[in-house]
Simulated scan of single mutants.
Amino acid sequence: MSFEHKRVDPTHADFVALVTELNASLVSVTNDSGESSFSAEEFDIQSDGCVVVYAEQIPVACGVFRRQIEGVCEIKRMYSKRSGAGSYLLSTLEAYATVKGYRKAVLSTRRVNVKAVEFYQRNSYVESEPYGKYVGVDRSICMSKTLQ
Rank of each mutant, 00 (worst) to 15 (best):
Met1Leu: 04
Phe3Asn: 03
Phe3Lys: 10
Glu4Val: 12
Asp9Ser: 10
Pro10Asn: 14
His12Tyr: 10
Ala13Val: 15
Asp14Tyr: 11
Asp14Ile: 14
Phe15Asp: 10
Ala17Met: 14
Leu18Gly: 13
Thr20Ile: 11
Ser28Tyr: 06
Ser28Arg: 11
Val29Tyr: 09
Ser33Arg: 00
Phe38Tyr: 14
Phe38Arg: 07
Ser39Val: 07
Ser39Arg: 09
Glu41Thr: 15
Asp44Ala: 05
Ser47Lys: 10
Gly49Ile: 00
Cys50Gly: 10
Cys50Ala: 14
Val51Trp: 01
Val52Asp: 09
Tyr54Cys: 06
Gln57Val: 10
Gln57Met: 09
Ile58His: 13
Ile58Asn: 14
Pro59Met: 10
Ala61Pro: 07
Cys62Ile: 12
Gly63Val: 03
Val64Leu: 07
Arg66Pro: 12
Arg66Trp: 12
Arg67His: 03
Arg67Pro: 00
Gln68Gly: 08
Gln68Leu: 11
Gly71His: 03
Gly71Leu: 02
Cys73Asn: 06
Ile75Ser: 12
Tyr79Thr: 05
Tyr79Phe: 12
Ser80Cys: 11
Ser80Leu: 07
Lys81Gly: 14
Ala85Thr: 07
Ala85Arg: 05
Ala85Ile: 08
Gly86Lys: 10
Leu89His: 07
Leu89Tyr: 01
Ala97Cys: 01
Ala97His: 01
Ala105Tyr: 01
Leu107Asn: 03
Ser108Pro: 04
Ser108Ile: 01
Thr109Asn: 03
Arg110Met: 11
Arg111Trp: 08
Val112Trp: 00
Val112Asn: 02
Ala116Asp: 00
Tyr120Pro: 02
Tyr120Val: 01
Gln121Pro: 10
Tyr125Cys: 14
Tyr125Gln: 11
Tyr125Phe: 15
Glu127Phe: 11
Ser128Cys: 04
Glu129Cys: 05
Pro130Ile: 07
Pro130Lys: 07
Tyr131Leu: 14
Gly132Arg: 15
Gly132Pro: 15
Lys133Gly: 09
Lys133Trp: 05
Tyr134Ser: 03
Gly136Trp: 04
Gly136Ser: 05
Val137Cys: 06
Ile141Gln: 02
Lys145Pro: 06
Leu147Ile: 00
Gln148Met: 01
